[in-house]
Design a protein around this nucleic acid. Structure first.
Lengths: 348, 348
DNA sequence: GATTTTCTGGAAAGGGCTTTCCAGAGCGCT
DNA sequence: AGCGCTCTGGAAAGCCCTTTCCAGAAAATC
């Protein structure tokens, strides 16, 4: 026999006020400590009544009355991806400081889903929206997104992006991907590498473009060729990296180093090497990008371009909570090359 | 000169109705597609007006009027921890299916923060709250939490936990930690191991207790001793695992295998071995628990007890969205031992 | 053609809280 | 004693929607 659960709606402020024998206004003043003083006796009565009735304010009603909420929205590609989860952790830490609640949404790199989530968060009257992760290089997407963000901002919302989101009307914290990639190439050239392979991600991701341009620029400058056959798309996932490395190895290109445009893909790439008996770095050097925490625990530890991921999250939140300015703010963040054992001078 | 941003509050439904020359009721009916039919002409006028005014419904007002929201709260220890982020990804995927928005909060294993977040989510009138990650073995915490959850449920909220949360009034999806640990021990015994070390976590975490009891039980049954000196607390973090393994190695206990109660700690432990030149598994076998995705990419790949993390998240959400029953539901999930290269028969 | 039934808009009553504005009380001062 | 102040509670007006109930019109029925 299934007994219906008794669900009486929770006590309202009015119930508390009545039970305490004061007006709604007084009860409200007691419970959210406005700057007005309430006689101690009333104060105590209200507090007692609230406790007694297990009063729990209705955040929706408050949001409506105050016409402001204390939630921020975070839109990212995938929480299970360590790159995003570390950034998200930073955001959440900072949000806690500001007494904000975080609504989080994963798009799985689907632009439409991203647009839909922005709408939803706008409807929620989130105080701010954080777009985390590379934007898309897609005319239609950009147009729509720009329109939505404008509308959201016009109604008082704040927006910040982490990573390059083209010209969207938003503050932005952006790693200097181009420079980081160039620095990485330089470091590898210094080690003596001359034959580069690259595992990239989908070209519609702006981050991917920036990084590959950084690589290309530095290689060009050094007069080192990077034939298209040396560049393989790995879809920005671990498995993609694995598959791409296999393709690269199958092609027998005699590479001395492979630059992988994200650590997550690099992890897959390293495993591909291991599975095929290719020794890193003895037979082939491998470098990643992002420096997610786990890569120092790989064997060999992965050379990467370090980004202060947690800090990116914190900064984005701080940016969005600070006084807005009329011009969009751009915070550039350098990426530092961290050489680890996955790269070494080539044998030949 | 800083120009104040113009923030006109966004258009209300009333504005849309007025602009379309219809009543509020009609506009509402058009926009959220109730089952009532509206004359095509009105319908079009409303739609046009809404578009024109960039109408965006106020979710708070809707929540208030409907007295139900479409958000679920997720409380976990730390999103940056892959164990949680993978579960969270599962939750979010399922939430998307149900058209739910996820509010996520990290407690950093602070019981007070957990309690506070439950309150906040109750105030938000979240449709459900998911408590992810081990509960605490603390009388005071349990009492308070139970009271809060009861109040929340009484007002119509649903609650589910992933992992053991003692007797809290909530549905629960729980890995069979004890059995998993026992199976792991058995597999290691079968490999010939007789000298076990253990890296644990804080004993107030119920999960830790269950796992260690599982280990102990199986070892006892096999007549293998596990002296207290062989058990070291690693704080459930990568660095804790690293430190704990160092302690264990310092103690020169002549262990043949170390069971680490979570993969995250095991990762640290493996790195400690590497840094000290202890070869795994040649000199020492190491096994973890959880089977987070990354461990197959470690070198050596880590033996672990596989939990279907993503699925745990999905199931918890499904549980909480299904028709509630009068008795708390308990879904047990088996953990399967996955033997990988980090464990091998001991040399001696 | 008259009557009943079916439709479809609109008015209005909430939903739970904040906050302004007002009135009365208590105070100090001359 | 009389005046003006400050101080504190309370009434009430929102905040923006949803949804019930009602009435009028159109359709269906005999």
């Amino acid at each position: 026999m299934v007994r219906k659960a008794e669900t009486r709606p929770s006590a309202t402020l009015e119930a508390v006020a009545r039970s305490a024998g004061v007006s709604l206004a007084t009860a409200s003043r007691v419970l959210n400590g406005g700057n007005r003083i309430v006689k101690a006796e009333y104060r105590d009565r209200v507090l007692a009544a609230a406790k007694e009735l297990q009063y729990m304010p209705n955040a929706h009603a408050q949001a409506l009355a105050r016409s402001t909420s204390s939630t921020v929205g975070v839109i990212l590609h995938d929480v299970a991806d360590p790159y995003f989860s570390v950034i998200a952790a930073g955001v959440m830490r900072a949000a806690h400081q500001h007494d904000l609640l975080v609504m989080m949404a994963s798009t799985f790199r689907d632009p439409d889903r991203e647009l839909a989530y922005v709408q939803t968060l706008h409807a929620q009257r989130a105080k701010a929206i954080l777009l985390i992760g590379s934007g898309f290089n897609d005319k239609e997407y950009l147009t729509k997104m720009e329109a939505q963000l404008r509308a959201y901002r016009a109604s008082g919302g704040r927006v910040a992006c982490i990573s390059n989101h083209s010209t969207l009307p938003a503050d932005v914290v952006v790693p200097d991907n181009r420079q980081g990639a160039a620095d990485l190439v330089q470091a590898l050239l210094d080690q003596g590498h001359r034959s580069f392979g690259v595992i990239t991600g989908p070209s519609r991701l702006i981050t991917v473009n920036d990084r590959i341009e950084g690589l290309r620029g530095a290689l060009d400058k050094a007069g080192v060729a990077l034939p298209d056959t040396h560049v393989v798309d790995g879809g920005f996932t671990r498995d993609g990296g694995y598959a791409a490395m296999n393709d690269l190895l199958d092609a027998k290109l005699d590479l001395s180093v492979v630059c992988v445009l994200s650590d997550v893909m690099a992890i897959g790439a390293l495993s591909a090497c291991r599975d095929r008996g290719v020794s890193v770095p003895a037979d082939l050097s491998v470098a990643g990008f992002d420096d997610i925490p786990i890569v120092r625990d790989l064997q060999p530890p992965l050379t990467s371009v370090h980004l202060p991921l947690d800090e990116l999250g914190v900064r984005a939140l701080e940016l969005v909570m600070s006084e807005p300015t009329s011009r969009r703010r751009i915070q550039r963040v350098r990426g530092d090359v961290v050489m680890r054992a996955s790269t070494s001078p080539p044998k030949r």
